[in-house]
Design a protein around this nucleic acid. Structure first.
Lengths: 205, 205
DNA sequence: TGCACTCATTGCACGACGTGCAATGAGTCG
DNA sequence: CGACTCATTGCACGTCGTGCAATGAGTGCA
């Protein structure tokens, strides 16, 4: 767990964080569409070229999630009790997304409000999570994710709850708490999504 | 319903269709990343500038859906029987998306296979549908979509079923039919998603 | 300590993207 | 026929995203 990290990588992480923080701040202030990559790079005191070595686009610097988070989420799901319902396991694991990233969410939400197109980009970035989680669910249920729609379905439904919670919380102007709404939505859906019986080949659903 | 359409608009629609067809064909053949807007415009025999008067980007020419389709879908949902379960109504209406567009789907699927990032763009374009459908669901159930998560949730779940069907059908290499998988998935979810009671203010879920 | 190696950062160059603007000409309406 | 609408077009410009080679700090080994 405690990896000895060298000075080089520490500096790289600092640069990475500085770029993300700059993008987040500028995007929240003025909307990402009115911010150029050059401004972000300058704010982080690096060159434009370096920015592109850390993020494929300025949008990703705001709403994209690092690759290691995907692994982290996958491991967290794999560590859930084997007898736990898939959707319940997803609720616990995905719910953590609301609480992480040390204060990045408020800025991120403001950036999204300033340019709602970012919400779409965010949902797209969830696809990477989904791909990883689908495999874990398939393994837990003993189903083949390429022949049985169930793993993809239950994961997509969990993401749907996440999306709906974000959207509604945003629409309510802060009256609703995304995390609580997410938990309630998942609980509501839980009854319908216990895994199908296997043995008898891929289920129709 | 039968709008008298002039020559001017007919030509514009022809240009629109030619551009979409060219983008679809080239994207399916070589992957949209290796196709320039100039090539698409040339194939449709118009200028590059004209392309951008019809589509905001080459990706939208392949996976984006026209604005009038959103209205069409909203109207179709509004026309469903008032006593029909929301999710069932969504199943019928969204299921039509698989059968429309006169043969565009095979090319579209090939383009997506050539560049899976398009799948993400496609899901993003669904957001426009969702926004419209959420309002209709809210109206049908008498709920306030800004205070009660239910309309957004049930719509997002329907989209999740759509997404999972597309993804699994793609992963199965054609062994599964997206439309049938979608129907089955919705049916499976139906039990859990009857609308909440109103009267007593916004429900917790 | 010295030396070879790794790699994050940088500048440069280039093709592609997306849009504002004004001109043109076909289509439309009275 | 004349005034108006509007799809199309070329032009210009700023921005994006990436390949390539150079630089120098960081790292590991003798």
């Amino acid at each position: 767990m405690v990896e000895p990290i060298g000075r080089r990588e520490r500096k790289r992480l600092a640069t990475h964080h500085a770029l993300r923080a700059a993008a987040l701040r500028l995007g929240a202030e003025r909307g990402i569409r009115d911010v150029t990559v050059e401004e972000i790079a300058t704010a982080a005191d690096v060159s434009v070229r370096t920015f592109y070595d850390h993020f494929p686009s300025k949008e990703d610097a705001i709403i994209g999630f690092d690759a290691w988070r995907v692994d982290q989420l996958r491991d967290a799901l794999a560590d859930r009790p084997a007898d736990e319902a898939p959707l319940e396991a997803l609720r616990v694991v995905m719910g953590q997304l609301f609480h992480e990233s040390s204060g990045e969410w408020p800025l991120r939400m403001r950036a999204i409000n300033a340019d709602p197109a970012l919400l779409g980009r965010m949902f797209v970035s969830f696809i990477a999570y989904e791909r990883a989680l689908v495999e874990v669910i398939a393994q837990r249920t003993g189903l083949d994710s390429e022949r049985d729609p169930y793993p993809a379905l239950v994961t997509a439904v969990a993401t749907a709850a996440f999306r709906a919670s974000m959207t509604t919380a945003r629409a309510s102007g802060g009256a609703l708490d995304p995390a609580a709404t997410f938990d309630a939505a998942i609980t509501r859906l839980g009854a319908a999504l216990s895994p199908p019986q296997r043995e008898d080949g891929p289920t129709t659903c």
